[in-house]
Computed example of a mutant assay.
Amino acid sequence: MSGVMRAYAGFLAEKLERYIELRRSLGYTFYKQAGTLRAFVRYVQSSELDGPVTRDMVLNFVLSFSGPANGRAIRHGVLRRFCGYL
């Protein structure tokens, strides 16, 4: 993995942890959502993707979930809100 891709995954992970802290400070338990977001960072890292986050990155991650359609919709919503934060 190139240094740029590792750097982007690190940047994303740092922003993600700040976002989780923010949501929890607002009173949300945010455990399942945090797991989804951390899985997205691992996906970006393992797929060797570089930023910024794109629609295709999010959709490919969401569609890789083999659970029910509602689960994919929930994942998409979690990522959409995180991207709004970014």
Rank of each mutant, 00 (worst) to 15 (best):
A13M: 12
S2T: 11
R75S: 03
A7N: 11
F30K: 05
M5L: 13
F61I: 14
R72Y: 00
P52H: 10
G67H: 04
L12A: 02
R72W: 10
S46C: 07
V41T: 06
T54F: 03
P68F: 00
S46P: 07
Q33E: 11
V44Y: 02
D50C: 00
V4C: 00
F61T: 06
G77Y: 09
L26S: 09
R80N: 03
F40G: 04
L26H: 06
Q45T: 06
E17Y: 00
T54W: 01
E17D: 13
L16E: 04
S46L: 13
A73F: 00
F11G: 03
G84W: 01
L59E: 13
R42N: 10
H76P: 07
C83F: 03
Y19N: 05
L79F: 05
Y28C: 02
K32C: 08
R42G: 03
G67P: 08
L63K: 15
Y43N: 07
A13S: 11
N70Y: 10
S66T: 15
C83V: 09
A9R: 03
G27Y: 08
K15T: 06
H76Q: 11
A34F: 06
F11D: 11
R81Y: 01
K32M: 03
P68S: 15
F11N: 01
F40H: 09
R55N: 12
R24H: 00
A9F: 01
G51S: 02
I20L: 04
V62I: 10
Y31H: 15
S66M: 08
F61H: 08
Y43T: 12
D56P: 02
V4Q: 12
F11L: 13
R38C: 03
N70L: 10
Y43R: 14
S2E: 06
G10R: 11
N60V: 04
V62G: 04
A34T: 04
D56V: 10
G51N: 02
G84K: 15
R55V: 02
L63D: 08
S2M: 12
A34I: 04
F82H: 01
P68C: 13
R75D: 01
R38Q: 04
L49I: 00
C83P: 05
V78H: 02
G3A: 04
L16M: 15
L16S: 11
A7R: 11
L59W: 11
G51H: 05
L86N: 13
R72I: 02
G27F: 07
R72D: 00
E48C: 09
N60Q: 14
I20F: 04
M1H: 11
R6P: 06
D56N: 06
R80E: 07
L59Q: 12
Y85T: 08
Y85P: 01
R24T: 04
A13G: 15
T36P: 00
R18K: 15
G84A: 14
R75Y: 03
H76W: 12
R38K: 14
R18T: 12
H76C: 09
